[in-house]
């Protein structure tokens, strides 16, 4: 028995192990650094027409939602923003994937391009229509793939807006002008829903499909000549971006108007009826939070907006000389003074 020798002979073994351990410890901060690097969120904003980015409003709400959950921009995450139209969605999504984004947030129809290029990277969408019908998810409760998000019930709400608008219209008028972005993914579905509602409500509609801001500028004089008693603006980014211009038009022509997001009424139009934009994009941020913490998109149910709000601009109502009926006043969740 020569324990001293045995110890000596095993020493090289120890040394190797020691070296690897030391190297491992030395490299650990690097490996950790890689894991806890700043999360990278790719934002795929949708510009329905030239220069009409409506990302700012929703981006602010999305950022606030992340802040609620303790994410500090610049410290915990960075946001890579790419704006474009549907045709460029795949290209822009690929760009974000190359930039090593951990997940993509795709606005409106941008999800259709994102879906094809992101492989297994999670994509959060917000879609007006039904994501199951659109083929994005297997079901709302179990999306099953790498896509999940929120859906805003637009077709259902489209008809309801017309009903509310009718309440604000002066008596004897049954003619409503409708402007909508014809490039919108759900345009046909919403058009059917609005037409069906109009038949039930006994209203005559004049449709003005648009493809660009220039189209809208051309449409406004036609609406004025058509003698419409009210204006329904089917909400989407193009229409949202033109809310101030529409406000100038509707106040000049003394037209009651309605659209989907509160910003439309805040810009000086009469009403909006739709999801609360802050709550809605906070829901999206909550999904992003869970995905960044390791949840799988396949397991995160698609959410619907919880609160639908009617916002009425009281200033505009007075300026238009409208006597809003009790049915409308009782429904208002918020008044803008």
């Amino acid at each position: 028995m020569t324990p001293a020798y045995r110890r000596f002979s095993s020493f090289p073994m120890h040394r190797r192990r020691l070296l690897t351990t030391a190297a491992g410890i030395a490299l650990m901060p690097l490996a950790r650094g890689q894991r806890t690097r700043m999360a990278r969120i790719g934002w795929l904003g949708w510009i329905g027409a030239e220069g009409a980015s409506a990302s700012t409003l929703v981006l602010a709400a999305f950022r606030a939602g992340l802040a609620d959950r303790g994410w500090v921009e610049g410290r915990d995450y960075e946001l890579l923003v790419r704006d474009g139209d549907r045709e460029r969605s795949a290209e822009l999504a690929a760009e974000l994937v190359r930039a090593d984004a951990d997940l993509l947030v795709a606005q409106g129809p941008m999800v259709f391009g994102a879906k094809t290029v992101t492989g297994t990277k999670p994509v959060i969408f917000n879609l007006g229509g039904d994501p199951v019908e659109a083929g994005l998810v297997a079901s709302l409760s179990h999306p099953g793939g790498h896509l999940t998000g929120v859906t805003s019930l637009s077709p259902e709400l489209a008809g309801k807006r017309l009903e509310l608008l009718k309440l604000a219209m002066p008596r004897g008028s049954a003619h409503v002008a409708v402007i909508a972005n014809a490039m919108h993914a759900g345009f046909a579905i919403e058009r059917d829903a609005v037409d069906a509602a109009a038949r039930r409500l006994g209203l005559a509609l004049a449709w003005h499909p648009l493809k660009s801001v220039a189209d809208m500028e051309a449409a406004l004089p036609r609406i004025a000549q058509g003698g419409a008693g009210a204006l329904l603006a089917v909400p989407d980014n193009l229409i949202n971006s033109q809310a101030p211009a529409l406000a100038r038009f509707t106040s000049a022509r003394r037209l009651p108007s309605i659209s989907g997001w509160a910003a439309f009424a805040e810009a000086g139009n009469l009403m909006s009826y739709g999801p609360n934009v802050h709550a809605y994009f906070r829901q999206m941020a909550a999904i992003a939070d869970r995905l960044l913490r390791g949840a799988r998109a396949a397991d995160l149910a698609v959410e619907q907006p919880r609160d639908i709000e009617l916002v009425i601009n009281a200033r505009v109502a007075r300026a238009l000389g409208l006597a809003l009926p009790a049915e409308l006043q009782l429904r208002a969740d918020r008044w803008i003074e």
Binding site: L153, E156, L157, G159, K160, E163, A197, R200, L201, I308
Partner: peptide, 8 residues
Amino acid sequence: AESRLELG
């Protein structure tokens, strides 16, 4: 009949 989504 009144609703948040459907016509009344």
